[in-house]
Design a protein around this nucleic acid. Structure first.
Length: 311
DNA sequence: CGATTTTGACCTGCGC
DNA sequence: GCGCAGGTCAAAATCG
């Protein structure tokens, strides 16, 4: 990528990423690179690319495939395409399924006591047989982060509730749930099998509470070099995701979010071109235009840096 | 001892 | 209908 292209993008991002052209509810993904931040001991993350999982983009059968630089399994892509939209307002699985998950094969049943049998019966009865309604899911957005560690600190507390091997990948996918009661946010963490240095973190849902670890608007206390994780960015991003999408729209093809033309998205070199994904958007070095509009970025940027920007 | 992680089993959706 | 793969549960193990 040409240097002047980089500059151009920085400018574009600086002016539009945090613009007010906010469309709520668009999930997206971002690719962050910690290297700059660590290098500069400022906790910056470098956004290498972004991707949009807006449902409108995927309601076509020919959903675009992910970027090969950090691809998600095909099945995952499919999932984004088909499930992004439809979660019930209060999805709550933990209590519901605990009942059904034990239901079981005969041998196990023999081993359990009477109470267990009763539970099993109850489960079978409860088993909600699917109707036409598709299972609904919270909007999702994913970050692709260059990181050594799989589980990035993001300011929220998570409890791991599962891990699965991913087909065609030597790296397992981990499932986490926000530990805060009444908060149903989940996240999945997996490592890209084509580029193991990249961690794909997918958030589902929206936190109904502030970060218990790092108060918003105050990250100045983050230890230098520790880096602000992309995860934190994502988790605190109620909005930036939409803002980032906004940036995409302005930067390239405004039409790509048009429901009626998902193919635009698929053919967009910036967003989907595999080889171009990480190259095409590279910005956010300290002092870049990225910081100009404080938007919610102030959440992840030490306050003194913002002051510098103002000068 | 409570919180968290691990892990095997089960549930669900989808493609064939 | 069957098999596969993703997602979730929950008991057991581990950790602080």
């Amino acid at each position: 990528m040409e240097r002047n292209e980089v500059i151009k993008m920085e400018e574009t991002i600086g002016s539009s990423l945090f613009s007010d052209h906010i469309s709520e509810g668009y999930p997206f993904s971002g690719i962050f690179d910690f290297s700059e931040g660590e290098k500069n001991s400022l906790g910056f993350v470098e956004l290498l690319g972004i991707q949009d999982y807006s449902p409108s983009l995927f309601d076509s059968p020919q959903a675009p495939s992910m970027a090969p630089s950090a691809p998600l399994p095909a099945t995952t892509v499919k999932e984004y395409c088909s499930e992004v939209l439809n979660q019930p307002a209060t999805p709550n699985s933990s209590s519901i399924s605990s009942a059904s998950s034990e239901a079981v094969n005969d041998e196990q049943t023999k081993a359990v006591d009477q109470e267990g049998e009763q539970q099993e019966k109850a489960k079978k009865q409860l088993k909600p047989k699917k109707t036409n309604q598709k299972r609904q899911r919270e909007p999702r957005f994913a970050f692709m982060t260059k990181s050594e560690v799989d589980h990035l600190e993001d300011g929220y507390r998570w409890r791991k509730y599962g891990q699965k091997a991913v087909k065609n990948s030597p790296y397992p996918r981990s499932y986490y749930r926000c530990t805060t009661a009444s908060c149903n946010v989940k996240k999945r963490v997996e490592r890209s099998f084509t580029d193991p240095s990249i961690v794909v973190t997918t958030y589902e849902g929206k936190h109904s509470h502030p970060s218990p670890v790092m108060p918003r608007h105050s990250l100045a206390g983050v230890p230098p070099g520790s880096g602000i994780s992309a995860g934190y960015a994502a988790a605190s991003f109620d909005m930036p995701m939409a803002r980032t999408l906004s940036y995409c729209q302005q930067l390239r093809q405004p039409s790509f979010i048009n429901t009626s033309s998902p193919s635009n998205f698929a053919s967009d070199g910036l967003i989907l071109n595999p080889s171009g994904l990480r190259r095409d958007i590279r910005f956010c070095t300290p002092g870049s235009a990225f910081l100009r509009d404080h938007g919610l970025l102030q959440d992840i940027v030490p306050s003194h840096m913002l002051k510098e920007e103002d000068q």
